[in-house]
Design a protein around this nucleic acid. Structure first.
Length: 923
RNA sequence: AGGCGCGUAGCUCAGUUGGUUAGAGCGCUACCUUGACAUGGUAGAGGUCACCAGUUCGAAUCUGGUCGUGCCUACCA
């Protein structure tokens, strides 16, 4: 074995070996356990959020597989309509063409080519994470089988009247030329202006001053509104204003929606270009005038002077024109929320179009009930509030997208505009008896990607035609996902799955936090703080990292800033930490908070942890080379140290199992880290040395120790395997045979179960005592500046026979671990030379000065210790002197406090006496 | 404007139903290449648990308020 753990040498080998041997597919007869992967974008790349969530899912999957369940982690990807189409369109733009020139069929073929070319990247990256996904069942939302489900669901909802076509305002992305749902719009506060314009009042010399943030929309104004309670304008309601530049008269109406406090208290109403105005237009029967094209430039229904202008240019021209007419009252700076498409980043326009909608109300009711009744549980629980608040105000879902990449809407129109929905043109003709001569045209649009994702848990399991897996694994057990897609995906899956299968899609929803950088900033390309999980595994040179972060930037002017930040954060680049260290970092950060600040320092720490385990294994195996271990064990031969470490391991097993049952991966990982490093390595390994190095003296003890050393490590590896699959497999393969365990892989070994017989109070007490004495001596050494190389003498003094017995039993350990020349027992009345003193419980630990020790240093040390004890005593005595405490606190608490007080008093007395002796030596 | 969350060591975070000497990792200080590991060992420094009030014998933990901070939803044109 190498002296240090080299993850890159083993990871690929083991992953391939597992995959080839089919270990990721469900086997056996146990209770089925299933997780459906949240399908990543087929052409995407792995990011930290994926890494985090897959680490969690893989731990759950490996745990249940080891626990004997038939375990399926269903894998697949989605087609990510908008994102993927954008990529290919950009390529076309690079080649000086566009999708319209290429044509629909050829374009879609190009997307498939792109998918075939780059679609494997993310699945390869998932493998690098160690994810034990069942690749033999990989699915894609555009697969024929899944597409059939999409179509079937669409038709069925349509026939039931739950899908309809509507003409209403949608969020329109003028760059992508498609409608997008409210969820795909991000509104951020930006700096803008509030323009005040004067609209001349008809039959009057006066003006009505309106305020607007979007002057260009005035071309589509069809009213001006005031609040009915607003006395300033009451007399004008019912009258008209002359709409400047447009030669139109529009009415002055009153509506409660208008806030008299804001702006001038007087609002222009543009029903075709604002959601609120649209509603008001409906209330008042106003005309709806659309003034934009698909590109968001001014259309031909607007005055000639502005036709064809881009919306922002039109804005400037209109302000100019109004100014020259003397109708510009003033311009105020104003902060407002600007809605931008989350894919394109351009300002989204409310736009009147025909789209397809899902009527969600009847689907939402049972979906709400499923969570209310506890059939589906969110972890942590308070996410249920988020779910409820959205579901109870749910809007109809706009599912059509004006794209070519996706599931085409199975609807056909005749020349009169009649709609026919069916699985194909011929099916439609047959059903509605439409003669061949009559032309039918299929709807050009495709469905929102989330529509197919909503069917994911059951479509991937073969519903409705091949029910073997569906019957076995559905509902799935848990969904692991981020809170950012509770609405996009989780809620919609619950609705659709209940509707079509009558089952919930999953029993639990584990909501993870969002991975941010070490300062809590969201990771984004423009901030330049993106970390790539693969770089943390393989490492990356600083220059390569800078290049990666600054290439393909949307805003090139940020390049310098990003470079500076990167060089400051990672002056030496990123080291290759390996998958196990990265995964362990994710677990350690997986607490209940909603922000996960990712700190590379922790990954480095866990890389060191991997190395620690590696070296512990190296030690255990080096000491077992060529030794025959009989598998017949007689626990009576176990030493206290043996029984102690077995007891601690049992406690760790209990803690890990409890933490996992609660989805507290942070607690599970912490408890494993603590046990392996601070108990097994720091203490048990050290305690084993005197036994193993002196094997001739007591061969039987040595063999027991060797056995326990290997057994505890082997079981720890199994406990650890769901978290660190590669390291544990590599070591386990070599180690397990030494204690007679046969098996092809640690993956297929049983996960440790609780065995309370291993708890051993007596051994715990003894080793706690031993550690306490060693610590006291080391403390004296450390603070007295006694070289670790120097052997020293020590005495223990006390009145408890138990302590004397412990000394006899543990003399060898004490001598080795505290580097003692000798250690002897003194009864309380025996005099001592001048000593440095430490305490463990009631035992005094004495190190003779004999020229070693600086008296003033020891005096200072004792005074510090005395000060500490005095503070503790004050707190304990304070409580006990309080009559109310004694009378009202539960008995055990009072008893505990009394014991504490007595212990401190005794310790104080001892130390004070020593202090006195130091300054007034007896000898 | 509503809703949710957070504020504990220099940094990143644990702290279960109130009773601990308030913990871990990283960083820091001193010493140590001892036969698993310097990706290491030993010892140590460092916290009025944001602030105020209340409940309680007892509050980091429960209640109310204040301040700071983050996110989500809905928005005033």
């Amino acid at each position: 074995m190498d002296k240090t753990f080299q993850p890159q040498q083993i990871e690929d080998y083991w992953y391939k070996s597992w995959e080839e041997r089919g270990y990721f597919s469900p086997t056996g007869e146990g209770t089925p356990y299933c997780i459906a992967i949240p399908p990543p974008n087929v052409t995407g790349r792995l990011h930290m959020g994926h890494g985090f969530q897959h680490a969690i899912m893989d731990a759950l999957i490996r745990l249940h597989r080891m626990q004997g369940h038939q375990t399926l982690w269903q894998v697949g990807t989605d087609h990510a309509g908008i994102a993927t189409q954008m990529v290919v369109e950009r390529q076309l733009a690079g080649a000086n063409t566009n999708r319209n020139e290429v044509g629909r069929v050829a374009f879609v073929n190009k997307v498939w080519d792109w998918k075939d070319e780059s679609g494997g990247i993310i699945t390869q990256q998932l493998r690098r994470m160690g994810s034990s996904l069942d690749w033999s069942r990989e699915r894609f939302t555009m697969d024929e089988q899944l597409s059939n489900v999409v179509q079937r669901v669409f038709i069925s909802l349509y026939e039931e009247g739950l899908i309809y076509r509507g003409n209403r305002l949608v969020n329109w992305d003028p760059e992508l030329h498609t409608a997008i749902s409210d969820l795909e719009v991000n509104s951020e506060e930006e700096d803008g202006y509030l323009w005040h314009f004067n609209y001349p009042i008809v039959d009057s010399e006066n003006y009505l001053t309106i305020a607007t943030t979007r002057p260009e929309t005035m071309l589509g104004d069809t009213a001006v509104a005031v609040n009915p309670e607003d006395k300033r304008y009451a007399h004008l309601v019912g009258g008209f204003v002359e709409l400047p530049l447009c030669n139109r008269r529009i009415p002055i109406i009153s509506d409660n929606y208008v806030d008299p406090e804001f702006g001038t208290g007087c609002v222009k109403i543009t029903p075709a270009h604002d959601f609120n105005d649209y509603e008001m237009g409906k209330r008042h029967g106003l005309e709806i005038i659309n003034i934009l094209t698909d590109d968001a430039s001014i259309n031909d229904d607007a005055p000639e002077a502005f036709r064809g202008l881009d919306r922002f240019e039109a804005r400037e021209r209109i302000v100019e024109a109004l100014k020259s007419l003397g109708l510009l009252e003033k311009i105020e700076p104003h902060k407002l929320k600007i809605p931008r498409g989350d894919r394109s980043g351009v300002v989204v326009e409310p736009y009147l179009t025909h789209q397809w909608y899902v009527a969600t109300q009847s689907l939402a009711d049972p979906a709400i009930k499923a969570v209310e009744d506890g059939d589906i549980e969110f972890v942590p629980k308070n996410w249920e509030n988020t779910y409820f608040s959205w579901m109870r105000n749910i809007q109809d879902w706009c599912i059509s997208r004006q794209l070519w990449w996706g599931h085409r809407i199975p609807a056909w129109y005749d020349s009169e505009g009649n709609i026919f929905v069916g699985s194909s043109e011929s099916a439609v003709r047959q059903k509605h008896q439409i003669p061949e001569g009559k032309e039918l045209r299929q709807d050009e649009d495709v469905l929102d990607t989330w529509f197919s994702s909503a069917l994911w848990t059951f479509s991937t399991l073969g519903w409705p035609d091949d029910l073997e897996y569906f019957d076995k694994f559905h509902p799935t057990d848990v969904l692991v996902t981020g809170f950012d897609i509770i609405f996009f995906w989780v809620a919609r899956m619950i609705m659709m799955t209940l509707k079509f299968t009558g089952e919930i899609p999953f029993k639990k929803v584990y909501i993870t936090g969002l991975v941010r950088d070490e300062h809590g900033q969201k990771m984004s390309k423009s901030k330049g703080n993106i970390l790539d999980p693969i770089d943390l595994i393989d490492g990356i040179e600083l220059d390569a990292l800078v290049k990666k972060r600054t290439s393909d930037m949307m805003q090139p002017h940020l390049r310098q800033k990003v470079e500076k930040l990167t060089r400051a954060s990672y002056p030496a680049g990123i080291a290759a930490y390996g998958t196990d260290a990265l995964r362990f970092t994710y677990y350690s950060l997986a607490s209940t908070g909603r922000d996960i600040k990712f700190d590379v320092g922790r990954t480095e720490g866990f890389r060191n942890f991997c190395n620690k385990i590696w070296n512990a294994a190296r030690y255990a195996m080096m000491n077992s080379e060529g030794k025959l271990l009989s598998s017949e064990r007689n626990p009576a031969e176990y030493s206290s140290a043996d029984r102690w470490i077995l007891s601690r391991l049992e406690q760790t097993t209990e803690d890990v199992l409890a933490a996992l049952a609660d989805y507290r991966f942070d607690l599970a990982s912490q408890s494993l880290h603590e046990f392996i490093w601070n108990e097994y390595c720091d203490w048990y390994l050290e305690l084993s040395k005197p036994i193993l190095w002196d094997e001739d003296k007591n061969p039987q003890a040595a063999e027991s120790t060797r056995w326990v050393l290997l057994t505890v490590l082997e079981r720890s590896l199994r406990l650890l395997h769901p978290f660190m699959p590669f390291l544990t497999e590599e070591i386990w393969q070599k180690l397990a045979p030494l204690i007679g365990i046969r098996g092809d892989s640690i993956m297929l070994q049983p996960y440790p179960e609780l065995d309370p017989a291993n708890f051993d109070e007596a051994a715990q007490a003894e080793i706690t005592w031993l550690k306490g004495i060693i610590l006291a001596i080391r403390n004296i050494r450390g603070e007295m500046d006694i070289s670790p190389a120097k052997s020293i003498r020590a005495f223990l003094r006390g009145s408890d026979e138990q302590d004397k017995i412990f000394l006899q039993l543990n003399r060898v350990y004490l001598q080795k671990l505290a580097k003692l020349e000798s250690i002897e027992w003194l009864s309380p009345d025996q005099p001592t030379p001048t000593c440095a003193t430490g305490l463990h419980d009631s035992v005094e630990v004495l190190v003779p000065l004999a020229g070693l020790i600086n008296v003033s240093a020891e005096t200072a040390r004792l005074k510090k210790e005395i000060g500490r004890l005095e503070a503790d005593l004050k707190s304990a005595s304070g409580k006990l002197n309080n009559k109310k405490f004694v009378s009202r606190a539960p008995e055990p608490v009072v008893i505990k406090e009394r014991a504490k007080q007595e212990k401190i008093q005794a310790a104080l007395a001892a130390l004070r006496e020593k202090l006195g002796e130091l300054n007034n030596p007896l000898t």
